[in-house]
Amino acid sequence: MAGILVYALHDDAGVFNNNSLGAISEAAKLAGEIGGEAAAVVVGEVDDAACAALGGYGASTVYRAKSVPEGLAQPIVDVMAKVITDHGFSYALFGGGLLGFEIGAGLTARLGAGVTMEVTKVKAEDGKLIAERPVLQDSAIVDVGYVSEPGIIIGRLNAFDVKPSGGGDAAVEDIEVELSAWSTKARMVTRGESGDEGGVNIEDADFLVGGGRGLGDKDNFAVARELASALGGEVAATRAVVDAGWIPYSTQIGQTGKTVAPKLYLALGISGAIQHKVGMQNSENIVAINKDQNAPIFEFCDLGVVGDLHKIAPKLTEAIKAKKG
């Protein structure tokens, strides 16, 4: 069977990740084109109704391994390797996300399978899938094919749109999987801490000022805050400054943060790495202030200002305040 198996990631409340739902929609479409079906793997105690509801995105079967914990890759490699081997799936597809990279890589080793990551589009040709992957800061796109089955495809964040298929419930099949010895040697102590309960919801803001490492230090985040408040918006951030503890995780945009599409995204001292770009590239207007004229963000902003943000941003804040009166 030329089926496609998708990993459906969920949070601790059992809510499925949008990128996983997008991957199921994409798998269902592609499976139709290559002749086969799309199925999903779920680990942990997710109830029957929630699993069956994945049918609404195009999954025909959901393989559920209740006793396997969610959140660490290696036990899930054991589960997916078994499902792929037992049922002969031709491809494994992952929506964007860190865990998908780790599980996909583990499957590559386990099954001797080819892998493509950061995939933005998948094409079906002659019953096979070809993955499109942008490389070298998106300056070229390579078409990658697989010489054997299964093939592993790891999508870029937001590459696959969530599309309800209009289909009914998926069949839910419980499976027992014996975990590999090394898969049980890592233990989740705490999962998904943001350090900022009840922070602002940047996804709803029309105006966002994003701050990056170029701000210089934690105190300088005030420069971004003042500009954001003059615009009537909120501040957002890159992973670099969240990891550095300048600002809480809830403001982070990108691959392992939030996806936003405000009316205006004004980036201060942000280089525009792919993992940040994927979370904000759909903003209506992107303005970037960066002192390095070669910064990747200048490749995809609408207005780029090459200069020192410390000179420009405070004056810009004053000018906007003056305009608004």
């Binding site: 390579v142 490749e299 090459v306 004056k315």
Partner: peptide, 30 residues
């Protein structure tokens, strides 16, 4: 190897944005 590069294509053309070089900051801000 289990993957094979079948082709290399340029990315879709994108309208490039406007770029300002900051020489006089008051003017830049304007």
């Amino acid at each position: 190897s289990k993957t094979q590069v079948l082709g290399i294509n340029p990315p879709p053309p994108k309208q490039s944005g406007e770029i300002i070089e900051d020489e006089d900051t008051n003017e830049t801000v304007e």
